[in-house]
Design a protein around this nucleic acid. Structure first.
Lengths: 252, 252
DNA sequence: GGTGCTAGGTTGTATATACAATAAGAGCGA
DNA sequence: TCGCTCTTATTGTATATACAACCTAGCACC
């Protein structure tokens, strides 16, 4: 548990990024302001221009900076492209609306993975994988069917938890933040059992969010979050930062 | 139609990318296969290793390739899905997969807005609003029905454009980047007409992305992007930035 | 047979250098 | 004042080089 925020990244170009992120966070480089030129950063940080350039180019691609050839590099308001899917803890979502959140744990068990599932967790067929199936309700109306596979290596005590008190998501986040996350959003129809759990009609289209996470040690979790289409949708709203004058060359 | 595809990228590292995309599209580099090493590409394409390396690193960051130090570089299967909130230009998405993109403009006209729509654009009922309805196809299969309302104040020449040559998205982006964007993702069933345009069955669940943009001058566009659920999904994959792990919300 | 070491191939990072492309401003002249 | 050119600052691309990190396969050794 790194209560110390400033663990130094290993690579130099990452330290350049970190340096700028820190200064942006501390307010020394506010939104829209111009940051030091590549040459200045080169001297300040003792890195070569190519290394500084790489760091800035990547931060530009990530939407954190905006660069204009011949002019300079500017701070762009952090683009919460992940706001839509980064957190995705259903209970927080519901509580934020001031509604009642309840979980019903339908299954919580270990089982032997078939070949496909085992392969996704980098195991041999038959390896033990934890499994949970939970219905989340908002004001007593089901809004999410959460099916989750968890690597025992990642969360050995998964089966001992009481997930009516704490969501799986929060529990797993507290073990270790993933180093990589993948989300895929589908529109599907639920199978008969899922329809029963969610108390919906057969014709109801559903949003299916497939979420997979990895840590440095390998695959950690795989989940399928099924939402009734008429009760739930995903949204985000944000302001991309813009340079004060002149229009930006569309895309960096 | 998409003469865009044949256009030679100007920069060398982009040509390296294009070379690989072409070979991936033509089947010479199937999903999962190993691509030539940096040294081999260096000799084949006459670029330096650093340039090849940059191209591969970027394609890896884009999710097109998978690289393992000490082993090699492999083609990662390109699923038909768009990066969730980053690009959202369907043609770029399709072309990036090396597929054929075609647009069919069904309607492109002005009409008098009813009260609700007018209110969204901060106008009085009866105000003139531009409207377009376009089907986008990937390899001759419809993948998106794009319905769009545009403020005449924002894009006065909207109706004069040929949107088979340039997507609405790209045209509007070139006018001015929005200062604010909102996305909402729903799961729905299409109405009869949309089913016909998308060539899907009545039971097929669809992803509906509602997108609204604003500029400093006020509301600019409002769109509804409808995707057949079995042909298209939205996805994102990323590595959370380092400082984010275990980070406490600015208490110091 | 197993174990450990080594060599070779591949990707990852860092640097110095060179030149190109772009934008803003200084200076100058009509 | 207007318009033009030149200079300067800054970012963008390309290359050669060096070394580090990592994986695999093969081989010697016990």
């Amino acid at each position: 548990m790194n209560h110390l925020a400033a663990e130094k990244p290993q690579h130099l170009y990452e330290r350049v990024k970190q340096y700028l992120l820190d200064r942006m966070a501390s307010g020394q480089l506010p939104d829209g302001s111009r940051i030091p030129s590549e040459y200045e950063l080169m001297e300040t940080l003792g890195a070569s221009r190519m290394t500084v350039h790489r760091a800035l180019r990547e931060m530009s691609a990530e939407g954190l900076l905006h660069r204009v050839q011949g002019v300079g590099t500017f701070v762009r308001k952090a683009e919460p492209r992940s706001a839509l899917l980064e957190i995705f803890d259903i209970s927080e979502d519901i509580l934020r609306r001031g509604h009642l959140h309840q979980s019903r744990v339908l299954r919580l068990e270990a089982f032997a993975a078939d070949r496909d599932l085992a392969a996704q967790f980098s195991r041999r067929a038959g390896a033990k994988i934890f499994y949970s199936l939970i219905v989340h309700a908002e004001n007593n109306l089901p809004v999410q069917l959460e099916e989750r596979f968890v690597s025992p290596r990642f969360a050995p005590d998964y089966l001992k938890q009481d997930f009516t008190l704490q969501t799986t998501n929060r529990y797993l986040q507290n073990i270790a933040a993933p180093s990589e996350v993948e989300h895929i959003v589908h529109a599907v129809t639920a199978d008969a059992q899922a329809q029963a759990y969610l108390e919906i009609s057969p014709a109801e289209p559903c949003l299916l969010v497939e979420r997979r996470t990895w840590t440095e040690a390998g695959p950690a979790t795989r989940s399928r979050l099924l939402h009734p289409g008429h009760r739930y949708s995903l949204g985000s709203r944000y302001q991309p930062a813009q340079p004060r004058r002149g229009q930006m060359p569309s895309r960096d």
